[in-house]
Nucleic acid binder design. Structure first.
Length: 278
DNA sequence: CGCGCAACCTGTCTGC
DNA sequence: TGCAGACAGGTTGCGC
C-alpha cells in the first residue's frame, strides 16, 4: 500500500514530532516484525539513542540515530505507523510493536498482513551501499531527469510498468502511481521500457513527478488500509484517473478503462489514450 | 545479467 | 449458506 507519497506524508509528520527525542523502550508483540533479528537484541541497540533525523529513501522510512545507526521501517502492503503524544485514543488493530520516547509519546506499528518490518542498519562503511543496492534515483530530486530515465530503460525488454516498479531504477513508485503516471503520459504499460522515444520519456518523467506530488499534496491514497501517522486518511484515491476504475469511462477520452495483468500486478489502462502499437 | 514467478501473510470478495 | 480459489498496494530469492 504505502508508496512514496504515503511514506513521505508519514515522514513529514514524524519529523516535526519525534526529531530530537530519545528512544526509551521497544515493545514487540509479534516477533515477525523484527525478524530475522530478535526483539531483545534490537531493543538493546536502540534504547537510549536520540533520533537525529527522520528521512526516507523510496518507500523506506529511516530514523537516523545518534552514533550513525539507522532504524529502518518498511510498511509493505498493510503496515501503519501511528504516533500519539500520550498513548491515548483507540487501540490500533493488528498491533505489532511500539517505540516509546522520552517525552511520553509513542510510535505504534500495526500490520494486518505482517509483511512490514523494523530493523537496524548499522552506520558503518557499508551503509550507503546498503541503500544504493535497494533504491535507485529519487524521483522528486534533481537527479531524476528524462534522460536519466532513458539511460535506466535502455535495452530493457520488460514492460515499462515492470521497469517503473523496479525500486533499483526509480525508488518509490508502486502499483497505484505507476498506473496513474503511465495514463497521464499516454503510454501503454506493456510497452517495452527500452522502446520509449525521447518525447515519451519526457512525458513519463513529467507524469511520474506530477502524480507523486499530487499524492503528497493530498496526503496519500487511502484505498484500503492506509492511514497517516495521526490516523487520518489521505484523499488521493479521489483523484485517481484509471487505477481501480475498470469499466468506467476514461476522464480524458471517454473510452472504457480496462483491467489487465502486467508484471503479475493488476493494471488499469485506457485503451483509447494509451494505445499499444504493434 | 535480465526477466518471470513463487513465496511471504491475512482478509475480502467472487463464483459455484 | 458454505467453501474453494483468486486477489490485494511490496520485496526477495530462485530458476531459466
Amino acid at each position: 500500500m504505502p508508496e512514496l507519497p504515503e511514506v513521505e506524508t508519514i515522514r513529514r509528520q514524524l519529523e516535526e514530532r519525534i526529531t530530537g527525542r530519545t528512544i526509551t523502550r521497544l515493545r514487540v508483540w509479534d516477533p515477525m516484525v523484527v525478524s530475522p533479528d530478535s526483539a531483545r537484541r534490537l531493543a538493546r541497540r536502540i534504547t537510549g539513542r536520540r533520533i537525529e533525523r527522520v528521512s526516507r529513501r523510496g518507500k523506506y522510512l529511516r530514523l537516523e540515530l545518534e552514533g550513525g545507526d539507522t532504524l529502518a521501517v518498511h510498511l509493505r502492503m498493510t503496515g501503519r505507523l501511528h504516533w500519539s503524544d500520550d498513548g491515548a485514543g483507540p487501540l490500533e488493530p493488528y498491533q505489532r510493536a511500539r517505540i516509546e520516547l522520552d517525552d511520553g509519546s509513542r510510535l505504534e506499528m500495526s500490520d494486518m498482513r505482517r509483511f512490514g518490518r523494523i530493523w537496524l542498519v548499522p552506520g558503518d562503511r557499508a551503509a550507503a551501499a546498503y541503500w544504493d543496492a535497494r533504491t535507485g534515483v529519487e524521483p522528486l530530486e534533481p537527479g531524476f531527469t528524462a534522460s536519466r530515465l532513458g539511460t535506466l530503460f535502455a535495452g530493457r525488454r520488460a514492460p515499462v510498468k515492470a521497469a517503473l516498479l523496479d525500486q533499483r531504477m526509480v525508488a518509490g513508485v508502486g502499483n497505484i502511481y505507476a498506473d496513474e503516471a503511465l495514463h497521464q503520459a499516454r503510454i501503454h504499460p506493456l510497452r517495452p521500457a527500452g522502446d520509449l522515444g525521447p518525447d515519451e520519456l519526457r512525458r513519463l518523467h513529467r507524469a511520474v513527478r506530477d502524480r507523486l506530488r499530487a499524492g503528497i499534496d493530498s496526503g496519500g491514497a487511502s484505498i484500503d488500509r492506509y492511514r497517516d501517522a495521526t490516523g487520518r486518511r489521505g484523499s488521493m484515491q479521489d483523484l485517481l484517473a484509471v487505477h481501480l476504475h475498470a469499466g468506467e469511462p476514461c476522464p480524458r477520452c471517454g473510452t472504457t478503462i480496462e483491467k489487465i495483468r502486467v508484471a503479475q500486478r493488476g493494471t488499469y489502462v485506457c485503451p483509447g489514450c494509451q494505445p499499444l502499437p504493434r
